[in-house]
Write a protein that binds this DNA or RNA. Structure first.
Lengths: 219, 219
DNA sequence: CAAAAAAACAGGAAAAACCCCTTTTTTTTT
DNA sequence: AAAAAAAAAGGGGTTTTTCCTGTTTTTTTG
């Protein structure tokens, strides 16, 4: 199937080889598809987007420097709500997928799909408004079953708590951390207790392992 | 610069879009380059490689299902030592890079390079035998300074200490761990002190983070 | 401006971790 | 069998973490 009118796309991905390769592929998939622009990240997209020449669909990664996929989709929602976003990402973590879907993206594809499926996805997004694979649907169902409070707790962590968590993943004592954050050690105790509750752990080691496991803190 | 004779390549990467896109790009970089085959992973490569029609260079990812980049390079070293490998990967962790270089790969590029640099890398591998960026060289230097310490530490760890380390990466108290290992809590104190010395850390959190970072314990 | 909520801070105690040094038991080596 | 080495365990103390309950200060809301 070809696309009814000229389909226009844009690519947002910091992996230059991948992005250039995708553009070549699209040429093969359907030469009538127009690639309006390509960008390295969300900031780059903001500079390149032209209100008089908007793409129908933006194909976007999640991990990008300077302005990641999440913030980029939020910005698009606020500024160009009619543009549809199809995520192309290696990340298959449930939290990431769910978060993107909550932001309203119209599809989420892994980078290991065949070009034919990419074509199907583009077609479905144009005709049906979305393209969700069984894998994605399975994630959606699963997330309903996970402790909603727990999921919300992660999203609702304050910036101060996040900072504390980062510092707690080190050999600093709570006293050291208090100094670092210009707070009282007793305040730090409070943060720790809050996070123990929110993340359902019961020791500092548990906290550190949780943070690393869920990508909140890098090693 | 064009390549002297027909350069032949193969691609090994589980991301189909990326792989197909790369093939398209190579066509643009130099239409005389021949892509002999493409594979999803190491096992796929083993099935597709033809001893009578070998590529000069294999461009390969590191993370692949079923048979990762490390095992794949080892297999190639044993079976087709004349084939050169250029790694194309998102992974910039020092351990991964060093491990690949130790296995003898002739270059390691991030997936966010420009196509022009890819071309340079291919040319350098053909003419000089390798292509190492400054970034990679920096990793090599650093690893000389750190590798020895880490290797020595690992060699000196007893099986009991390793077991303790695994259990210490949890919310168990030392008392719990002692019961689990059928030892006295005082013995556990001794293990902890030994590991603090060997791994140069000074707290249980430091121990846990070290263990996870160096792959001694999985999350 | 007052009330409510959020953030920061506090007292005090118990548990756990950490530290230094030593002894005992078991295993290995000679 | 004895000596040496390694592993396990111990005494005792300090520091840090954890826990419970509460107060004060600052910010937000009405």
């Amino acid at each position: 199937m070809n696309f009814p009118d000229k389909l226009s796309l844009a690519f947002v991905d910091d992996h230059t080889l991948f992005r250039k390769g995708m553009i070549s592929l699209v040429e093969i998939i359907d030469p009538t598809i127009k690639v309006i622009f390509e960008a390295d990240n969300g900031l780059d997209l903001q500079q390149k987007i032209d209100p008089l020449n908007l793409p129908d669909i933006i194909l976007m990664d999640v991990n990008m420097p300077h302005m990641d996929g999440f913030k980029t989709v939020e910005w698009l929602n606020n500024n160009y709500p009619d543009i549809k976003v199809l995520v192309l990402s290696m990340i298959e973590q449930e939290e990431t997928i769910i978060r993107m879907l909550k932001l309203g993206v119209k599809g989420y594809l892994s980078k290991d799909v065949e070009p034919a499926e990419l074509k199907d996805a583009l077609a479905a997004i144009i005709h049906k408004g979305f393209y969700y694979t069984d894998f994605i649907t399975g994630k959606l169902v699963h997330t309903l079953q996970v402790d909603q409070q727990h999921a919300e707790a992660i999203l609702k962590m304050s910036e101060r708590e996040k900072k504390f968590l980062e510092l707690a993943c080190s050999e600093l004592t709570y006293s050291d951390i208090a100094q670092e954050m210009f707070l009282s050690p007793k305040t730090i105790d409070g943060y720790r207790n809050n996070l123990f509750e929110k993340l359902k752990v019961k020791s500092r080691v548990g906290l550190a392992l949780y943070a690393v496991k869920h990508g909140m803190v890098k090693l």
